[in-house]
């Protein structure tokens, strides 16, 4: 069983301690979210786990064979067209051109991109389309571990649902493991098996919430009621500074 295991992870920029003694574990086909206010070290934690930052203290064990990521901004290469952008990860894996274009086109259609968009450059696509392409690029490689760095934050509610449904399909089929970062508690509840609360200054995990109901059985009512419950949680209120004055 592949897993991502973080043990006693601490990280600082100069004298600024960003993360302190972080411990958690993500097992295969689990969805784990980190919620916390902006600037609390969520992205730093993700970058450490993804191997984009060098570890300073503690241990990270990542035994997933393949990984990919979707960011808040689409980060499409502006000099590549839609299909080339989607196929980027496949190209890195050494999949031959014909094969990778075929797979890219297939997933593009699934993400409701149209054939006429295939040879457009990112500048010719709307923001929503760009995010579809970005998601297609992240998923076309069939990653074992997917990092989501607030990819839904800037989207309208319809597209948000649509992309989340794609992710839910994969979760239901137990095909993917997800490390999800968000500041939106409702989003976290909809998708996750476990929600870790990251308190800032310095970043540390102060509480873990478990959600056992399978994702595809969670209706709006479930999500809303759980959200209400979490929002009245002492630690959540303090971490997000929710108190009314």
């Amino acid at each position: 069983m592949a897993r991502l295991k973080v043990e006693d992870l601490s990280f600082s920029f100069g004298y600024d301690t960003i993360l302190e003694k972080i411990n958690f574990e993500i097992n295969e086909s689990e969805v784990v979210s980190i919620v916390g206010p902006s600037g609390g070290g969520k992205t730093t934690l993700l970058r450490l786990c993804a191997g984009l930052l060098d570890r300073q203290e503690g241990k990270i064990e990542n035994s997933f064979e393949t990984q990919s990521i979707a960011f808040q901004d689409p980060r499409l290469l502006p000099w590549k067209d839609t299909i080339e952008n989607i196929a980027f990860g496949l190209k890195a894996m050494g999949v031959p051109r014909v094969k990778r274009n075929e797979r890219a086109k297939e997933i593009a259609l699934k993400f409701e991109l149209e054939e006429k968009d295939f040879d457009k450059f990112p500048k010719e696509l709307s923001g929503g389309m760009q995010q579809r392409v970005s998601f297609a690029r992240a998923l076309v490689t069939k990653p074992k571990l997917l990092f989501l760095d607030e990819p839904f934050s800037a989207l309208d509610i319809g597209l948000k649902m649509e992309l989340q449904n794609h992710v839910m399909d994969l979760i239901a089929k137990k095909e993917i493991t997800i490390f999800f970062i968000t500041h939106d508690i409702m989003e976290a509840i909809r998708l996750s098996d476990k929600v870790l609360l990251l308190a800032p200054d310095p970043g540390r995990i102060i509480k873990i919430f478990d959600f056992d109901l399978p994702q595809n059985q969670r209706d709006n009512e479930y999500v809303y009621s759980q959200t209400t419950k979490l929002l009245s949680d002492r630690e959540i209120i303090e971490t997000f500074e929710l108190e009314f004055r």
């Binding site: 970058r47 993804a50 191997g51 984009l52 990984q67 990919s68 990521i69 960011f71 901004d73 980060r75 290469l77 980027f88 990860g89 890195a92 894996m93 490689t141 990092f147």
Partner: peptide, 13 residues
């Protein structure tokens, strides 16, 4: 640097 990060996640040679 954003593109570089993206490429590094995909372990681009």
């Amino acid at each position: 640097s954003g593109f570089e990060e993206m490429a590094d996640i995909f372990k681009v040679p």
